[in-house]
Nucleic acid binder design. Sequence first.
DNA 1: GTCTATAGCCCGATAGAC
DNA 2: GTCTATCGGGCTATAGAC
Lengths: 198, 198
Amino acid sequence: MSATAAGSDRRAEIIATGARLFAERGIAHTSIRDIGDAAGILGGSLYHHFRSKDDLVDLIHRGSTSALDQLYRDALSGTDNAAEQFVAMVHASFEMFDRYPEATVIYMNDRQYLAARPRFDYLRTAEERHHKLWRSVVVRGVRSGVFRPDLDAELTSRLVQDAVWITGRRWVRTSRARRSIDELAGATSKILLGGLTG
Amino acid sequence: MSATAAGSDRRAEIIATGARLFAERGIAHTSIRDIGDAAGILGGSLYHHFRSKDDLVDLIHRGSTSALDQLYRDALSGTDNAAEQFVAMVHASFEMFDRYPEATVIYMNDRQYLAARPRFDYLRTAEERHHKLWRSVVVRGVRSGVFRPDLDAELTSRLVQDAVWITGRRWVRTSRARRSIDELAGATSKILLGGLTG
DNA sequence: GTCTATAGCCCGATAGAC
DNA sequence: GTCTATCGGGCTATAGAC
């Protein structure tokens, strides 16, 4: 249906505009009118395409969490060695940052906005689901003797997960053009892995 | 003067209430009326104590940056060994998180709010000033052979500074009672330092 | 599908009584 | 020093014309 297709194009364009502005200025500081202005449409008219501002926020994040689930699954299934799994998890994370840069930045910057709304609970549960994976790699590494025996699994896994995400945010915002994700993932995993094996 | 002293007490009480609410819910999501309710006063009456909401935000952060300057100065002056300086910098950071927990959390969560207002430029310049210190330790460590030679100074120093702060935020919010700052700083610096010397 | 126009709400801040 | 009362403005979202 051509009407639907044309509608989808406009819709996709507006989603992209909203994602860009939300990532640049934050959700709370970007009004519906701002998005309308940037998309060449009046604020009120956006409600023909979306039911609410949060629907738009939701559309930006839908897909990214399940994509990361799949990337982490692949990262863990390739090997049984904890150090190799760790490096693969770092690379998988940066692959996601590269595919969903706006969702990455918005999630990092607007945690409080998202946490205050029950409809975005799926983002928090995804983070906890992924933390269990990071934690399992740390525990396996300690048990198998690949990582140092004195690591606190909870502290270590939180630290590496947080460090990878915050490095990803910085990269998306400041140096995406200058440095490839493989370079960055390699340098990041080398530092963090050295701390676990050292 | 007793009137001034009594006024200062009330003022300090309101600052503490504002700091708590800003840290819990975020600045944008905490209204003047919210602070008034929590302090047992009407919103409008707060303007007898402060000129604006941002004045209150400012009072919460004033002092913490210069205190951190001093802590870092002391950390660096104690030794010339880069590894020891690194551990001292981590400890200094957590000392600051312990002394100014609300300022720490607000700074981490409301970066966008603060970055959008010129009056809070001093927070960003402080972060850059402190980053130069982290970077100098990394560079000194590489040059003196204490750290691995292949470290990218910019990436590494950003990573450790970010990782320390985000770990501090998590600690302030979730486990301040359960774990002392010395324990946490020790575990954190051990992991990060291992990545630099590994 | 986009427009005009506005309802309804919350916000920061102010004026003046007590 | 706190109150009552309110101004002026921005916001999300809606109703109905075109």
